[in-house]
Design a protein around this nucleic acid. Structure first.
Length: 470
RNA sequence: UCCUCUGUAGCUCAGCCGGUAGAGCGGGUGACUGUUAAUCACUAGGUCGGGGGUUCGAGCCCCUCCGGAGGAGCCA
C-alpha cells in the first residue's frame, strides 16, 4: 500500500479521471435516504475531498454506519465534476473500505468547532484538526524557506551542542543534565575530611556541571570565525517558570552569525530574512493562511502584507524613550532612559506609533548581554531588537565585542568569571574580526505568520512549565 | 513566581436572593433523490473539579487542594 494520490494532488486535477484510490480520515458525513456524502481529509491540504456514496455501492448498508468522523478509509472511485457549488470535483465512490473505525461515543473530536484549550488536552489527536494541521504545514514551509534563504546566501548550516558545560551563556535558566543519583549526591569534603554541602561535579558524567543549551550563539561565533557565515537551527531550552502565550521551555531557534559584518549588515540581513520567510509562506501556504484569516485573525493578510511591503522602521533606544516620554501616555512602568522597554512600551511603538516592525538599536549596556559591542559613547551597545505588532520582540541580536581588552572588562563588569570564557576570549586574541548575528524564535515567527495567539498551539508537542504530556 | 478570571452533559456555556439542574452544538433513532455549519422530528446523556466547613437545606457562601485561561516579570 502506498498513497499515490494525495488529496492535494487530486484537487489540482483539471479534468475528470477514472479508477482513483484515495485514503484519508473522515471529517464529516451527510446522510440522505439513498446516498451519503463524506468529506475526506488526508493532511496534504486543508481542503477536504467530497466523496459521494450511492446506496448501490457494495455493502452500503453495513458500511455506512461505520463511516463516522475520525474513521480512516480507502475509497476507490472516479473523479467527476461536482453538481454542488462548493467544489469543482468530487469522487463518485465504487467501493469504500473502512481501515480504522472511530466510535462516535468515544472519539474526542466531534464535527463541530473545538476550543484550542480543549485541543491541548488531546495533543495526540489535535493534528487532525484544520487549525493545528495548518500550523504544522506552515511550520514545514517556513523551515524550508529558512534553509533556502541562508543556503542561497552562502551560509553554512552548523549544529551546536544540545548539552553544554558552559554555564555561562547567560541567556536564561538552564535545565541541568546529570547522571548523579539524586538520592546519593556526592558532596565535596573540606580539608578536615568533613562533608560540605557543595556538590562534587567531578563525579558527574561530564566531570563538570552540565545543562541543556539556552543558545548556540557562543559556539556559533566559533564557527563564524572559521567558516564566515553560518546559521544554526535547533532546539533551545529555558527552565524559567514562564507562563505566557509567548514562552516555551523547549523551542526552536535560528541563529545566524557572520564574520566581517557590523550591526548595519546584521539589520539588513534580519529584515530581508523576515520578509523572505513571510513571502514564501504566503505563496506556498495560501489555503492555510486563508483559513487563519477566516477563523483565527481577520486582519492577518493585511498585517503580513505590511511586513513585506514596508521598510522596517529603524530607531535607537534613545529615540524610543523620547517617543514614549512625549506620547503623554501613562504607562504602568514609567519610562526613563536606562530602563528596559516593557511589553506595553514595545506594543505602543509597534502598534500605535509605526504600525509595522521596528528595529531598535543602541541599548544601554547595563540592560544587555556582556558580549555586545560597546559604542564609542561608552554607554550604549550595538544591540538590535526587532519588534513586531502584537508579539513584541521576535529577533534579538547584536554586533559582538571583538576587542579582547574591552570584552574582558565587560565580563568583569557583569560580575562574570573570565576563566569560564577562556575559549570565547581567545576568538578575540587570534585573528579577531568584526562579527554580528541574531537569534530568532521560530515559534514566535510562526505565531506571527499564522496569527495564532498562544505559542503552545504553534508547536506539535509544547514543553512548558508543568506541561509535557504529549 | 506574582495578579486576575475560571472549573456545571461528550464540547461550549446559562443557572436570579441558598430550595438537589437547562440550552446550543455533538451523539443515537427516524424522515428526506445533490448535501456541504445540510434540514426537520423524536431521544438519551449529570458524584455541578477533589476534600472539608456553615446551614433544616449548597452548583451558589467560607476554607483548602488540584486543573485551565489571560496578564506581568524573564526572554526568543
Amino acid at each position: 500500500m502506498y498513497n499515490t494520490n494525495s488529496i492535494k494532488e487530486i484537487l489540482n486535477y483539471t479534468e475528470e479521471k477514472t479508477g482513483l484510490t484515495v485514503y484519508g480520515w473522515i471529517r464529516t458525513k451527510r446522510e440522505s435516504k439513498t446516498f451519503s456524502f463524506i468529506e475526506l481529509n488526508d493532511g496534504s491540504t486543508i481542503q477536504n475531498l467530497q466523496i459521494i456514496i450511492n446506496d448501490t455501492v457494495p455493502g452500503y448498508s453495513d458500511t455506512i454506519s461505520t463511516l463516522t468522523t475520525g474513521a480512516s478509509v480507502e475509497v476507490v472511485g472516479n473523479l467527476v465534476a461536482s453538481q454542488g457549488g462548493k467544489q469543482k470535483f468530487e469522487i463518485q465512490a465504487q467501493s469504500v473500505k473502512v481501515l480504522g473505525v472511530a466510535s462516535p461515543d468515544e472519539y474526542p473530536l466531534q464535527k463541530k468547532k473545538h476550543t484550542l484549550e480543549y485541543l491541548r488536552e488531546i495533543g495526540h489527536l489535535r493534528p487532525r484538526t484544520n487549525t493545528i494541521a495548518a500550523v504544522l504545514r506552515v511550520r514545514n514551509a517556513a523551515c524550508f524557506a529558512i534553509h533556502t534563504f541562508f543556503q542561497e546566501r552562502g551560509f553554512n548550516y552548523i549544529q551546536t551542542p544540545v548539552i553544554t558545560a558552559s554555564d555561562c551563556e547567560g541567556a536564561g535558566q538552564m535545565f541541568q543534565v546529570t547522571t548523579l543519583e539524586l538520592e546519593k549526591i556526592p558532596f565535596i569534603k573540606d580539608s578536615n575530611g568533613k562533608t560540605t554541602n557543595e556538590i562534587d561535579y567531578s563525579k558527574d558524567f561530564f566531570g563538570k556541571k552540565a545543562g541543556l543549551t539556552v543558545s548556540g550563539q557562543l559556539e556559533g561565533e566559533i564557527m563564524a570565525t572559521a567558516l564566515g557565515k553560518i546559521y544554526t537551527f535547533g532546539p533551545t531550552f529555558r527552565a524559567e517558570h514562564s507562563n505566557t502565550t509567548r514562552h516555551l521551555a523547549e523551542f526552536w531557534m535560528i541563529e545566524p552569525e557572520m564574520a566581517f559584518c557590523d550591526i548595519f549588515g546584521n539589520m539588513d540581513l534580519a529584515e530581508k530574512f523576515v520578509k523572505s520567510i513571510v513571502s514564501y509562506v504566503m505563496k506556498e501556504c495560501k489555503d492555510d493562511l486563508d483559513f487563519f484569516t477566516q477563523y483565527i485573525s481577520p486582519d492577518l493578510m493585511s498585517n503580513l502584507a505590511v511586513v513585506i511591503e514596508n521598510k522596517f522602521e529603524r530607531i535607537t533606544y534613545t529615540d524610543a524613550v523620547d517617543i514614549l516620554l512625549k506620547s503623554g501616555v501613562k504607562f504602568e512602568y514609567p519610562v526613563q532612559w536606562g530602563i528596559d522597554l516593557q511589553s506595553e512600551h514595545e506594543k505602543y511603538i509597534t502598534e500605535v506609533v509605526y504600525k509595522k516592525p521596528v528595529i531598535v538599536t543602541g541599548y544601554p549596556k547595563e540592560i544587555k548581554a556582556f558580549y555586545m559591542k560597546l559604542n564609542d559613547d561608552g554607554k550604549t551597545v550595538r544591540a538590535m531588537d526587532i519588534l513586531v505588532p502584537r508579539l513584541g520582540e521576535i529577533i534579538g541580536g547584536s554586533e559582538r565585542e571583538d576587542n579582547y581588552e574591552k570584552l574582558c572588562a565587560r565580563i568583569k563588569e557583569c560580575g562574570l568569571n573570565e576563566e569560564d570564557y577562556w575559549w570565547y576570549l581567545e576568538l578575540r586574541k587570534f585573528g579577531s574580526v568584526p562579527h554580528a548575528g541574531f537569534g530568532l524564535g521560530f515559534e514566535r515567527l510562526i505565531q506571527f505568520i499564522t496569527g495564532m495567539q498562544n505559542i503552545r498551539d504553534v508547536i506539535a508537542f509544547p514543553r512548558a512549565f508543568k506541561t509535557a504530556e504529549f
